[in-house]
Design a protein around this nucleic acid. Structure first.
Length: 703
RNA sequence: GCCCUUGUAGCUCAACGGUAGAGCGCGCGGCUCAUAAUCGCUCGGUUACAGGUUCAAAUCCUGUCGAGGGCACCA
């Protein structure tokens, strides 16, 4: 039997679930359901990565044991998955499972017993150097210390005291011997790393030279991890422990999971990862696997990140994150699933805004698929006593069918459906979900058009058209049946629902779309009770509710959690090697202060508007000449034309960013920026110019 | 500084080197089975710019500019 093994990253258990977790897991769930339908023996892994110094520290800060803490986080993750219907995973992997300890230790031994492609030992003991703050009693990472001008020794950000350079014993993996092996494996295989652009990045990273990788820490500095076999003074450090979950979960190196079937699944694994952890999943993971004498994965696919509706990165500070609570409260799970697959070109970054989601749900689901189902079934109720009519047209009635604009031969529709189905599957197999869905929607449009052309509500009045009417309704319903099967993995609940409304009761989860045959929908089948599957959303109403809940949330916000940055290995040169995770998480976002120096870079000055006028053919721009106490007034352009009459601004004193890089707009150079309070919540309210209550001198600097 | 990707309609995206299309949105008209739905029509493009190769370029090559990303460097 063909097998398919799909994994999400195991999410690092140091922060609560967010959109990135939901997204990757959703895609994996869709793929798993799809492959199951198509007869694959499918295995779906997700879970949490639960070791490491970060978790140890967060737990300590909360006065918990690390185990209690990761139990809590993984519990939250499972709850979130359940909230969004993501319950079909075969294992929720946790690296704290005893079987994983056993297996990863066995993997370590296996690797250690082998040699690198260049005949060296794979693992050796060395030293790595790190900066240690005695006051904190902790090693400090790049993000936790600063190097001041003219100083060599970094200072702890907490105590501002110079750090000690401490040399610590560590085991290293001889990654530097694997460059050629990796290049050969990756360059020659077009589907090993996808998409192509990411593959190129990995290749160029490898070509720039690989350094050996520290894979352990002394137990005295990091205790929360898997002990190194044969040296209980060390625990494994991050990657070897975390990545290996993909094999330990299916039975590598342990008895407990053996029954799952490492042999049958491993050759057919697809790893979904965020682009931020691709390198670890390729360079490190492939090398570990080779060192253990194991096959490489079939495909590792790096997907993009979700940006906000304006294309900016999401973050706490910008307040533009998508809140899972809001999604759950206001949107159908199936609509979210559809949206994330339809809206993002898989592999590229995508934009996620509540408004876009509402628009998609209304246009494609409510008006599109939902309405087609609704109009078709309601006509069957009205015109055919609620039973699927016969779709055949007798030859002597062809003339009437043609008169109604209907091709008497259903073969034309059959080829359309078959072609759409084949293309859909082809795109799906190639991870082109967005395009696959587009194809399905072109079929919906076609059936809508068929109905409009045939006008069943008129056919019913003409007894010569009885067969035409039946054929139209049969064709529409049979198409719906096909669409339910195709779309089931994407929108499982809704498609089951429509499938049931058509009057079908077999198990849609195992209907292979490849085997769909036109005409298998049985005449005389009684259709089920019809109901709207996709509710239409009132955009304004939903948006204002979301805004309201957003405000409430900010008021009730808990104090910020302790900031913990990932610990880095100082010797390896990859400070950005963050843990298994994807999407920016809260812990990364908390610290976002600027220094006084940063602020002083911005030269804010008081200026008086001398001239203000509209610019021909520019709807938004106004041209100003503003006196900043310089030789002559500056020309500054600002997008205020929609909100202010230029005349009313003359003589006003405003705050100007005086050292902004000049920029040309509408052919005019702008030498600064006028400061105004802007309401960026999309309500279109007018901005307010910054002003002073007291009298101020022109040119005065603000600081 | 080096490298990768990308630039097509207001927006999101298509288009083996062969007549630039679709969806959404906008405007007009039709229809009533349906969830203010749906159907038709219209509007919308010098394919970022400049060269080159070719019978033919959105597509291939070179350069410029813009966007995103990776690495290095700096902080």
């Amino acid at each position: 039997m063909k097998t398919f093994y799909i994994t999400t990253p195991i999410y690092y258990a140091n922060s609560l679930p967010h959109l990135g977790h939901l997204y990757t897991t959703t895609v994996a769930d869709v793929l798993a359901k799809h492959k199951k339908q198509r007869g694959f023996d499918t295995y779906f892994l997700t879970g949490t990565d639960e070791h490491g110094v970060n978790i140890q520290r967060v737990a300590e800060a909360k006065g918990q044991t690390p185990k209690d803490y990761v139990d809590y986080i993984s519990g939250e993750m499972k709850k979130m998955f359940a909230d969004f219907g993501l319950t079909d995973y075969d294992i929720f992997m946790r690296t704290t499972e005893p079987f994983h300890y056993e297996a990863v230790r066995s993997l370590w031994r296996k690797i250690a017993s082998n040699q690198t492609p260049k005949g060296n030992s794979t693992i050796y003991k060395g030293f790595y150097e790190a900066w240690f703050c005695p006051n904190c009693a902790e090693f400090k990472t790049e993000t936790e210390y600063e190097i001041r001008d003219g100083e060599d020794v970094p200072r702890c950000l907490v105590h501002e005291r110079p750090l000690d350079k401490v040399s610590e014993e560590s085991y290293f993996f001889r990654l530097s011997d694997y460059g050629e092996f990796l290049l050969e494996a990756i360059e020659g295989n077009p589907i090993l790393i996808r998409p192509e652009a990411r593959k190129n990045e990995v290749i160029s990273f490898i070509k720039s030279g690989l350094q050996d990788l520290s894979i352990s820490r002394e137990k005295k500095s990091v205790s929360w991890g898997v002990p190194v076999p044969g040296d209980e003074n060390h625990v494994m450090y991050v990657w070897l422990d975390a990545l290996s979950n993909y094999i330990t979960a299916i039975g590598y190196g342990n008895e407990e999971r053996k029954a799952v079937g490492f042999e049958k699944y491993w050759g057919n694994v697809t790893h979904l990862v965020g682009k931020d952890i691709l390198r670890q999943h390729s360079v490190y993971w492939f090398s570990f696997l080779d060192a253990a004498g194991l096959e490489l994965p079939q495909t590792i696919y790096a997907h993009g990140m979700w940006l906000d509706a304006d294309g900016r990165k999401m973050g706490k500070t910008l307040g533009n994150t998508i809140e899972l609570g809001v999604l759950r409260e206001h949107f159908q799970t199936d609509a979210i699933r559809y949206f994330v697959l339809r809206e993002m070109v898989f592999g590229q970054d995508g934009k996620f805004g509540y408004e876009n989601l509402i628009e998609r749900a209304n246009a494609d689901l409510a008006s599109g698929l939902g309405n087609l189902s609704s109009r078709t079934l309601s006509m069957i109720n009205k015109y055919c006593d609620g039973a699927i009519p016969n779709g055949k047209i007798a030859e002597h009635n062809y003339i009437y069918a043609k008169r109604a604009g209907i091709n008497p031969d259903e073969q034309e529709l059959v080829s359309v459906l078959e072609h759409a189905r084949d293309e859909f599957l082809r795109k799906f197999d190639n991870f082109e979900f967005s395009q696959a869905l587009e194809i399905v929607w072109s079929v919906i449009a076609r059936i809508d058009k068929m109905i409009s052309d045939a006008k069943p509500w008129e056919l019913i009045k003409d007894e010569n058209q009885a067969e035409t009417l039946n054929a139209v309704l049969y064709r529409a319903t049979e198409t719906l049946r096909w669409l339910c099967v195709l779309l089931f993995p994407v929108m499982p609940e809704a498609m089951k629902n429509i499938y049931g409304q058509i009057g079908l009761s077999d198990d849609i989860t195992v209907i292979n779309p490849e085997n769909l045959n036109y005409g298998e929908l049985k005449t005389e089948t009684k259709i089920g009770e019809t109901q709207a599957v996709f509710p239409r959303l009132d955009k304004n109403k939903v948006m204002s509710e979301i805004m309201e809940s957003g405000k409430l949330k900010i008021e009730n916000e808990e104090p910020k959690p302790v900031v913990v940055q990932p610990t880095e290995n100082v010797l390896t040169q990859n400070p950005t090697d963050v843990l298994i995770n994807n999407q920016p998480d809260e812990a990364d976002e908390v610290e976002n202060f600027i220094t006084i120096d940063d602020f002083l870079k911005v030269e804010l000055r008081v200026g008086e508007i001398k001239v203000a006028e509209r610019i021909p053919k520019a709807d938004k721009l106004l041209r100003f000449e503003i006196d900043l106490g310089e030789e002559k007034p500056r020309q500054i352009l600002a997008g205020l034309a929609e909100y202010y009459e230029p005349e009313t601004l003359i003589g006003r004193k405003v705050v100007v960013v005086a050292n902004l890089k000049p920029r040309t707009m509408r052919g005019l150079e702008s030498n600064g920026m006028i400061c105004a309070a802007s309401l960026e919540n999309g309500t279109g309210e007018k901005p307010a110019l910054a002003a002073f209550i007291e009298n101020v001198d022109i040119g005065a600097r603000l600081k």
